[in-house]
Design a protein around this nucleic acid. Structure first.
Lengths: 116, 116
DNA sequence: CTGGATCCAAATAGATACTG
DNA sequence: CAGTATCTATTTGGATCCAG
């Protein structure tokens, strides 16, 4: 299969631009989290949406999914090296966004506000 | 109006994540372009879509729109300082995307491939 | 030349219920 | 616990035509 003539910026935005994806990567930075833990952190995400975003990130090679064959089920998600390599960019986007919001007198406040 | 509790990363992606928006900013980097010139550069964008993206970027303060009161109409678009401040991030996203595509044996090729 | 207006197709996201 | 399945609601994007 040939994918010539793809714009690198558009490709990147397709990979990390999905709803909840930046948040997922941010929360997984340095940690390993279970499905339920992610769901609590992204309280507004339905299981269906969260699963979809996780599968796509996994297929794009940014996160790893480890299934433990136990009852009840246990699944752990973590960043791959590729996923980790994107965190600095997320960080600079976060900085830019904070400046933008501050300039517009909007108070930024979310779990991504802390620095990594 | 109060916009508390907005995530800076999500805010940023809303601002620059729209279709054609990264491309528009990239093309305007250091240049001033007319509507028709942008349309040629973004050949797949319909006038309606291009107008919509430009208006949103203008409302978010990333680009400036200058109308010359002549016949036929002449409108020029350029980056504001805020828009210019986003170019380095676009640049690092571009780098990351190129590495990603290369790692997957996909040949990147678009008007954003050149470095700024 | 620079769009606006309208209509329509497709993609995306949410609510809810259910299961190994 | 970690998801699926189904059905809708909403958003987004494209096609086409029109106008100052």
């Amino acid at each position: 299969m040939n994918h010539d003539y793809i714009c690198p910026v558009e490709a990147t935005l397709e990979i990390v631009g999905g709803k909840y994806k930046p948040l997922i990567l941010w929360h997984l930075s340095g940690k390993t989290l279970r499905f339920g833990q992610l769901q609590k952190l992204l309280s507004s995400a339905t299981p269906k949406m969260l699963t979809k975003q996780l599968r796509e990130l996994e297929n794009d090679g940014l996160i790893a999914r480890k299934v433990y064959p136990v009852v009840p089920p246990k699944v752990e998600y973590s960043l791959t090296p590729l996923g980790t390599s994107f965190i600095p960019i997320l960080s600079s986007i976060c900085d830019w966004g904070n400046n933008y919001l501050k300039a517009n007198n909007i108070c930024p406040n979310c779990s991504m506000t802390e620095q990594k």
